[in-house]
């Protein structure tokens, strides 16, 4: 690490809409992307994060500070993540997962993916399309064929036993 002296180092992060944020290096290096920059000595001035807007970055920094304050206790970290994500709407979650991916923060990426999956779970395909604004580009015949292909997952496997 660049600085391992007594005083905690602070980094300045810049969002793609030119907002500046100060964050403790110890928290910021949860992002492998940032950690690499620090290790390569490119973190002297302002670190530009071209793929993250200010609103999302503020949220990610809250997460970085929160999670790095918890010592090595996986359960507490998990409950912090759950709580942190509990009040986020879908658009925010999508922004977060993109940011987590760009910043290379696998634990946040996993947690957000799991959260979005949780929203989808046990919902009908129609519901998912509506909720997430997905256009169904299958022709009715194609859709029926895909459904037929995985019929066994929808209805059990009795019909496949002769194969």
């Amino acid at each position: 690490m660049a600085a391992e002296t007594g005083t905690p180092t602070t980094l300045t992060l810049k969002s793609n809409d030119d907002e500046l944020f100060s964050v403790a290096e110890s928290a910021a290096i949860l992002s492998v992307t940032i950690r690499n920059m620090v290790e390569d000595g490119c973190a002297g001035g302002v670190i530009p994060l071209d793929n993250v807007d200010g609103k999302t970055l503020a949220s990610v920094i809250t997460y970085m500070n929160g999670i790095s304050a918890i010592p090595a206790d996986e359960e507490k970290k998990k409950s912090y993540r759950d709580k942190f994500l509990s009040d986020k709407d879908f658009e925010t979650l999508a922004d977060m997962v993109l940011a987590a991916n760009y910043l290379n923060m696998s634990c946040l990426m996993d947690a957000v993916s799991a959260k979005i999956a949780q929203v989808m779970e046990k919902k009908s395909v129609g519901w998912v399309r509506r909720k997430f604004g997905i256009e169904n580009d299958y022709t009715p015949e194609e859709e029926a064929a895909v459904k037929e292909e995985h019929k066994w997952t929808f209805e059990g496997v009795e019909t496949d036993d002769d194969n």
Partner: peptide, 18 residues
């Protein structure tokens, strides 16, 4: 990554979405 977090049967069902 999102689909990975679904139980297997639910994950397969996503193939019908689009």
């Amino acid at each position: 990554s999102i689909v990975s977090h679904l139980p297997v049967k639910e994950a397969i069902k996503t193939s019908v979405i689009a």
